[in-house]
Every structure is written in C-alpha cells, then in structure tokens.
C-alpha cells in the first residue's frame, strides 16, 4: 500500500488506521493481534459506560471497549457492521469496537506531531500524536489511556 514511504523513512512506524464516529484514528500495528467482526457481547454489571461487555475470543474472555463512547464521539450506526480490533497491551488484551478499518500506513517518525494543548477536548487525552496522510489528519491512539481502569476492585 504505502511501500514507497517505508523505503525512504529511516525509522518509520506502521499504523493501522480506522474510523470511529466519523474521525480517523490509528494504533501501532505491533499492538494489534487480530481484527474480527463484531459479536454479541455479554454485558457486565457495574461497568463503565464505554465497556460494551465481554466476548469469547477462542476461549479467552475479551473485554470490548466501545471506542466512540470512550472518546466521547457520536455513536455511529448500530453494531451490526462494526469491527473489533483486538489489541495487546503487554499483560492485557482488549477489543476496540470501531466503525471500520481503513488502511495500513507507514509513517516516518519525524512526521509525527504532538497534539496541540486544548484542555477542553476530552478526546485529546487519548491521542498521543498526530500525523497527516493524503491531507487527512490521523490521530494516533494512546492505548493505555483508552483501557478501562483496572485493579481498584481487585482484592
């Protein structure tokens, strides 16, 4: 897809870009384990609003995060056509529910920009960097921040 860029950039990062609530986001492709269609999630009691529930991923219990709700965006169309990106964060694995997966991009690291400081925007805290591809702004997601807080209840 964007092989040319890969050759020029000394250190480039490969990103998986996707659409959520009408905006373009991306995550480091190394943290993506798989992409799968949506499934009916078992809802969890007392869960934060953005935790959709858990699904069975070949025998493991996978929490699903509704990313548009998490980012405070307009919830897109209904869940039928949604896609789940399974991401690995060291110890934890979670599914991010997004509208659609768009592309794999290789971005030279010097083209990454820190997000400007806009305190009002809630979603900003979830964005670790910005970049421009084909005049579209791609937000790079801070996966750690997106994850639901963990451990406070664990005895």
């Amino acid at each position: 897809m964007t092989d040319t860029e890969k050759q020029t950039g000394s250190t480039s990062i490969e990103l998986l870009s996707f659409r959520v609530g009408g905006q373009d986001y991306s995550v480091d492709i190394m943290s993506v384990r798989e992409i799968r269609g949506s499934a009916k999630a078992t809802s969890l009691p007392h869960a934060p609003f953005f935790v959709k529930g858990v699904i069975n991923l070949r025998g493991t219990v996978l929490p699903i995060i509704d990313l548009s709700a998490r980012l405070g965006l307009q919830s897109g169309e209904d869940t039928e056509r949604n896609v789940i990106i399974v991401v690995d964060l060291g110890e934890r694995t979670a599914g991010l529910m997004v509208d659609a997966v768009s592309d794999i991009l290789a971005i030279p690291s010097e083209e990454m920009q820190p997000p400007p400081d806009l305190a009002a925007d809630e979603a900003k805290t979830f964005v670790s960097a910005l970049t421009i591809v084909d005049s579209r702004m791609i937000r790079i997601l801070d996966l750690e921040a997106v994850m639901p807080p963990q451990g406070e209840e664990v005895a």
Binding site: P45, V61, G151, E153, A155
Partner: peptide, 26 residues
C-alpha cells in the same frame, strides 16, 4: 474463566464462563 486478568473485579460477580453456544456467561 477469570475476569480479573482481563478486566478487573466486578462486585457480585466471581468469574465468567463460556456456554455451549459460545457466549460468555457471568
């Protein structure tokens, strides 16, 4: 199937399991 590793503890819920239809039940 423990929930604490993947999600955390939920009040009133001990763990999860997978039922015959592949769905997760708490």
């Amino acid at each position: 199937k423990g929930l604490e590793g993947s999600y955390g503890r939920i009040p009133g819920i001990a763990a999860a399991t997978i039922l015959g239809d592949g769905q997760i039940a708490l």
